[in-house]
């Protein structure tokens, strides 16, 4: 992947899309293969064929480039919106509250939730919670954002507001990997599409070609059902 690219990963349930994504930030470990983040290895496979992860310092560094947004939001329920945002910058990066607050507020404004900073997650709608989760991940200033089916737990009418936020991010050239069932989003916002089935990458192309002229039978069948 290149910087600024938006990669959409699509495919039927159980095809390994989320697993692939979760391997990138070590929520799942791999048995063999190599993952490079910003040119540096997170894990590589030596001659013995076994994947070897880098030491914990280098791993921390590699993982710090990535932010993640989950299907189930996973906001911290005992913290207010603003507390959710500043928790990691304060605890992990050692920033002072006062130093990170302006940026956190800026992000809330960006996702359109400035007036909700003192709410608890349970007081927000699903779409609002997911936008907070996006802001929380952004607050760590990641270079790459990973999205694991960010709209799958939302009502159709709330999906739009989250996709809008993601489109804006893409327009700002944030590097993004998005596992999604939203074909319209993949078609319009992605610079690259990967189609997976049964744990394998079946087809890979730019969205114009991918949706306009799919090559593989498996892809054609999937798209026919989805569109």
């Amino acid at each position: 992947m290149k910087r600024g690219e938006v990669l959409a990963i699509i495919g039927p349930s159980g095809s390994g899309k989320s697993t692939l994504l979760r391997c990138l930030n070590k929520l799942e470990t791999i048995d063999s293969g190599t993952i490079l983040v910003e040119g540096k290895a997170l894990v590589r496979t030596g001659a013995d064929g076994k994947a070897e992860y880098v030491d914990s310092e280098a791993e921390k560094e590699a993982l710090s480039h990535m932010g993640m947004v989950f299907q189930q939001f996973n906001l911290f329920p005992h913290m207010t919106v603003i507390e959710n945002l500043i928790e990691a910058p304060v605890q992990v990066q050692g920033l002072k509250k006062a130093d990170i607050l302006p940026y956190a507020r800026e992000l809330l404004q960006k996702v359109g939730l400035s007036d909700r900073e003192d709410y608890y997650p349970s007081q927000l709608s699903g779409g609002q919670q997911q936008r907070v989760a996006i802001a929380r991940a952004l607050c760590m200033k990641p270079d790459i954002m990973l999205f694991d089916e960010p709209t799958s737990a939302l009502d159709p009418e709330l999906t739009g507001e989250v996709l809008k936020t993601m489109r804006e991010l893409a327009a700002e050239h944030m590097t993004m990997v998005v596992v999604t069932h939203e074909m319209a989003f993949a078609r319009e916002a992605a610079s690259h599409v990967i189609f997976m089935a049964d744990g394998n990458i079946v087809e890979e192309n730019n969205p114009g070609e991918f949706f306009g002229n799919p090559q593989e039978e498996r892809t054609k069948a999937f798209l026919k059902n989805m569109l």
Binding site: M68, F70, F76
Partner: peptide, 9 residues
């Protein structure tokens, strides 16, 4: 746990 981990905690 996963959210905390991806935030580097």
């Amino acid at each position: 746990y996963e959210a905390a981990k991806t935030l580097g905690m």
